[in-house]
């Protein structure tokens, strides 16, 4: 099958357990190339777990995780590292290297995986910082940045190798409304300009309606609903309705799923 027909990411009936606790109970999803897909659901439902299964940091108990048609769960370390060069991952708090400058943070993947001379690296890094609206901040240290700026630097770093797929773990959590809009706009622009496939994990329904092309709603280890955000908002599935409209009452329990008696 030619690469462009294979979905960028595909989960087939994935089961994942953390200790005794069942996190994912037969989750399947298909994320087409070029789309921004959102994975939503209440906190602790296993959204981040899905990203870590895609990046190969976790392995499913059963089922398959395919990235560009290749089974991540069957890869050895070397194949995994090769796959990750083509995969950007924006971690929850950005996870910038605190002892390196902004410039060096963005330059790190280039230095590691591309054989470029110093002026070429400087050109790329400056261009990428400019693209996230942070031109001229290269000499700052991460602790001198605001939360929103740090997130943007992390975004620049995540896409500096021109990956085909970028995973975003709660990219808007803990940011002020303006920074949220900025990050949203950047995710959209980066996705379309660079021709990426993006997966965004979030619980922010309002932002997701604006950003995502397609949504998956995860509840109690299963996909409770999927579809374009507008369709989901009008869904009459009780779990989807509860989440999309933030109701306290509904099938999604207000309890830790691992607690006794649940």
């Amino acid at each position: 099958m030619p690469l462009n027909d294979t979905p960028a990411i595909r989960l087939e009936d994935v089961v994942f357990r953390h200790g005794d606790r069942l996190i994912l109970d037969g989750v399947s999803m298909t994320i087409p190339r070029g789309a921004i897909a959102a994975v939503m659901g209440p906190s602790g439902v296993g959204k981040t777990t899905i990203l870590r299964l895609v990046s190969g940091q976790l392995r499913p108990e059963s089922g398959r995780v395919l990235v560009n048609g290749e089974d991540v769960s069957a890869m050895n370390r070397k194949a995994l590292y090769r796959m990750r060069e083509n995969l950007g991952f924006l971690l929850q708090n950005g996870a910038l290297f605190t002892d390196l400058t902004v410039f060096e943070n963005v330059a790190t993947p280039l230095r590691e995986h591309r054989d470029l001379d110093e002026p070429a690296i400087a050109d790329i890094v400056e261009a990428r910082l400019d693209a996230v609206g942070l031109a001229g901040t290269g000499d700052l240290m991460p602790h001198e940045l605001s939360g929103g700026m740090a997130r943007r630097v992390a975004l620049a770093r995540a896409v500096v190798l021109d990956p085909a797929i970028v995973l975003f773990d709660e990219p808007m959590a803990g940011l002020d409304p303006i920074a949220v809009s900025t990050i949203n706009a950047l995710i959209r622009r980066t996705n379309d300009d660079l021709g990426l496939t993006s997966v965004v994990v979030t619980h922010d329904v309002v932002q997701m309606k604006k950003l995502a092309d397609y949504c998956y709603i995860l509840a109690e280890g299963r996909i409770a609903g999927e579809g374009p955000p507008a369709e989901l908002a009008a869904s009459d599935d009780p779990a989807v309705d509860q989440f999309m409209n933030g109701r306290m009452d509904g099938p999604i329990p207000f309890r830790y799923a691992g607690a006794a008696g649940s």
Binding site: S55, Q57, Y81, R82, R84, E85, L87, F89, L91, Q92, N93, A95, L96, F97, T98, T108, P109, E112, H113
Partner: peptide, 10 residues
């Protein structure tokens, strides 16, 4: 998360 970030950058 910096160790994680490294792993994810291969």
């Amino acid at each position: 998360g910096q160790i994680d970030a490294m792993e994810l950058m291969a």
